[in-house]
Amino acid sequence: MSEIVSIAQTPTDRLLHSDSRDHRVDAMFHFAVKSCAIVVLIALAGAAASMLYGGREAFSTFGWKFLWSSDWDPVTKQFGALVPVYGTLVTAFLAMLLAVPVSFGIALFLTEISPLWLRTPTATAIDLLAGIPSIIYGMWGLFVFVPYMSKHIDPWLIDHFGKLPIIGMLFSGPPMGLGMLTAGIVLAVMVIPFITAVMREVFTTVPTPLKESAYALGSTNWEVVWHVVLPYTRSAVTGGIFLGLGRALGETMAVTFVLGNTHRLSASLLEPGNSIAAAIANEFTEADSSLYLSSLIALGFLLFVVTFVVLAIARLMLRRMARMAGN
């Protein structure tokens, strides 16, 4: 405003000055926003570095043995990552096994089959489901789902599958309700909204002419999906699955409530186990020796590395899809 007033008095002079002042402010602004952006980089690098540093005691004491030892004894100070890592991987795998087909079905339903009036409410419902805090899933899991599992599903599984030769190993043990299977199911419910959202978005980017030509040639709904939609969106679908996997691997609260938190390795899905995030959450405040603390932080570092890799892959696949779509 003051520039417009002074322009009337000494036009060239004021203009020149205001120009250089603007340049200076522009340069400062550029610097300011760039630093904010660098903060993001520092945050991630700092997270990785601090956990590596915190875990150094554990890594230097145990070395590579840390990765495959199943000891976890705070008294004798022997710690190994095998049980938590195993639990994390198994529950995440179970969750994906259950979640991917269901998400696929829901996304398909939303984009191809459902009547138009049903689409928005269902989509909104799924999005809201994605926003529910994980601790709610945990509580629901513990108070509602676990009793249900132990009363109805576990005994059924043990009766029918427990006696079979190899699969039987997966379904043995007391029907407590807690355990890897329960955790896997709760995780699956958590992850379904994410994968569904990505899949749905991606399915809608398939060019309609492509689908219409397939229909015109006489394909059924299913054939169009399997032979046209899926191949077109393959990398994005994979990206979405990896995104869900990343979430499942790192999930703390939903798993802590229903996994049982025991440091015992067991082949049965019905037995309790432990996961990295659950172990850290439960034992962090009780860790009495610096080696204990360091082992927990080292576990955190392992989790970080694994999720970083999974998320990086997801990102790459989704980017490739976006580029294909001409973004």
Binding site: V40, A43, L44, A47, M51, L243, G246, R247, L249, G250, E251, T252, A277, I280, A281, G300, L303, F304, T307, F308, L311, A312, R315
Partner: peptide, 11 residues
């Protein structure tokens, strides 16, 4: 940023 967005909050 995307990694940070989806990183486990426990980390």
């Amino acid at each position: 940023n995307d990694i940070l967005l989806s990183a486990p909050s426990i980390v």
